[in-house]
């Protein structure tokens, strides 16, 4: 069994890795055990590992790529196109609106004639890009206001998959349980 650790205070939150693991577990029961730590980093070897797989693969993006090549039945066949978009996804973590807009323009034009990022079903590319957009606090209003029409349409399509839309809730819930446990069941004051 593989082990994925998610950092609850990761920057950005590792939604992509969490979604990828959930997709694998939907197809292969209990293939990946997911644990959570209430820290900025999920690994002692690195200060800012938002997630770590089997103590060796560090960071959400690398984990998605590793799972994608291990489970082609879940993520589709690896291709240079998917690799290209996995790399692209790393640029979506910026909180600079102007910079992000420039990056999203590329996706907007790519989606003129495409419903999914690559091919006709969800692949690792959708997981990586959607996960980083979901984790970026400045993206919400961009999607809602349809600043990029095609991007918003694609985002909604991916979001209609419960494994994707449920990732944030799953993380919040798991962290809540973790914090409850660490305070010995004591009621904690409300934190933001």
């Amino acid at each position: 069994m593989s082990k994925l650790i998610i950092a609850g205070k990761g920057q950005p939150l590792a939604y992509g890795a969490l979604i990828a693991a959930s997709l694998v577990n939907n197809a292969h029961k209990d293939a990946i055990a997911v644990e959570y730590v209430d820290e900025k980093s999920a690994s002692k070897q690195s200060k800012d590992a938002n997630a770590v797989l089997n103590d060796s693969t560090i960071g959400s993006g690398a984990i998605i790529a590793a799972l994608a090549s291990k489970y082609p039945d879940v993520f589709g066949t690896d291709s240079t196109e998917i690799t290209h978009w996995l790399e692209y996804a790393t640029k979506l973590t910026t909180k600079n609106f102007k910079e992000l807009s420039e990056v999203l323009k590329v996706l907007e034009s790519h989606l003129n004639f495409r419903s999914y990022i690559v091919g006709y079903a969800t692949t690792a590319a959708d997981v990586a890009i959607w996960g980083n957009l979901r984790a970026n606090p400045i993206v919400g209003s961009i999607i809602k206001n349809k600043v990029f029409i095609n991007v918003s349409r694609w985002y909604g399509l991916v979001e209609s998959n419960a494994t994707f839309s449920g990732a944030a809730e799953l993380l919040t819930k798991s962290l809540g349980e973790l914090r409850k446990k660490s305070t010995g069941g004591k009621k904690e004051g409300h934190k933001a």
Partner: peptide
Amino acid sequence: RHFTYVLGN
């Protein structure tokens, strides 16, 4: 324009 399929997602 806003939905992938005619009746939604």
